[in-house]
Design a protein around this nucleic acid. Sequence first.
DNA 1: CCGCTACTTGCTTGTTGCAAACAAGTAAGC
DNA 2: GCTTACTTGTTTGCAACAAGCAAGTAGCGG
Lengths: 220, 220
Amino acid sequence: MAATVKIDQIERRTQAERTALSDQRMLDAAVALICERGAAGTTLKEVGERAGYSRGLASYRFRSKGGLSAFIIRSIGESWLRELRRVVKDKVGVDAIAAATDAHFRFIVEGSDHIRAFYMLWFDSIGPDAEVKQVVANIHERRRRDVAAWIQTGIDAGRIAPDVDIAGTAEQFCAAIIGIVYQWLVTPDAQDHIQFLHESLKRQTALVLSPAHEQTGSPT
Amino acid sequence: MAATVKIDQIERRTQAERTALSDQRMLDAAVALICERGAAGTTLKEVGERAGYSRGLASYRFRSKGGLSAFIIRSIGESWLRELRRVVKDKVGVDAIAAATDAHFRFIVEGSDHIRAFYMLWFDSIGPDAEVKQVVANIHERRRRDVAAWIQTGIDAGRIAPDVDIAGTAEQFCAAIIGIVYQWLVTPDAQDHIQFLHESLKRQTALVLSPAHEQTGSPT
DNA sequence: CCGCTACTTGCTTGTTGCAAACAAGTAAGC
DNA sequence: GCTTACTTGTTTGCAACAAGCAAGTAGCGG
């Protein structure tokens, strides 16, 4: 009887649980492989096998390599956005942006390989794969909206001048983040540099959004 | 006789000229293919054939796909750096950086597919291919040194405060450029956005480097 | 409530097409 | 003739798909 119970607890799973488990295992396997060999060097066969399944499962589940990429980006991107919003919580304006920037830095240095794999795939979205492209575009858009919303809260609270270019500043901020991430991926060990870049970004963004800062047009 | 002369003029080439010609043709073919299908979707076979040669020439000449990428990045990167220095010429400090930024914008919007393919391969350097990685790292480093040198000339001319963080600012500028380029690759049609991002970068960099601007430490 | 059978879904193995990489051969310059 | 540019033949490995196997689930008589 005890044996039966044990089997029930350990081996017996519903179909939904089975897929959830294999999804999780393949996600972890893929992340590890991408960090080791790069995204292009990672094969669906290896993902399946390292996850403890057959060579064909990753192909079957995700349909294509782009499908796997999309799945990984979606998974990690979602949890990342959730975490970010938790950190920012009810902060407003420049404080919110500063908190998000700090969180970003913390994530990419202390975060596991997941963030690294995530961004490696992110930069793969340059390619022609429409599915991956769309997923990345969505996340990117959500980020921009988040930043724009934070700026708006600052304006509402009277701590940011109302005539500031919200969308433009948000876009610029996100572009800067991407640039920093690129640096990090290329030279992951230069933690000081990465921190410096985050700090600079915080400072400059605060400067642009400060009420004292008067927006001068193009100087002559 | 005339036929012989014609053949001599058209077909007869030295060995060096032959390789130079095939290199050029394959470069153009590769650029076109990369813009059409992405870097990953471009095959060495197609590069050779579209260039008017056999399926195997690209493999033979560049040894590997990474070899082709390295060749393209080197070729375009070199001419780009040359052109950039020509534009900046004897400008100093903020003016030099502004001129370079303007040139960068002009190049990526009016420039042919070459710049586009160049940057698509650039972002591929995230991958494990050591050769490509090294080439990109070299260009990146040269860019940073150029920017740092421009800042230095501004300091020497007394138009930039001497206590400014040269290396940090240069690194930040280059990171921002990368971020902007990413945006451009993802949404190539949004020319206004790209221009805006370049203008913002110019303004912010000028702000950071302006003698009037006092460097405040981390707030609080 | 239990056990058996039909159906569904997760997963595996077989196969095809294609690209990278290399080796051996042909032709064009020297 | 001899070297060098280029071509063709071949191998290996992966993505993609298809067909089969096994584990889970639902319907029915006891």
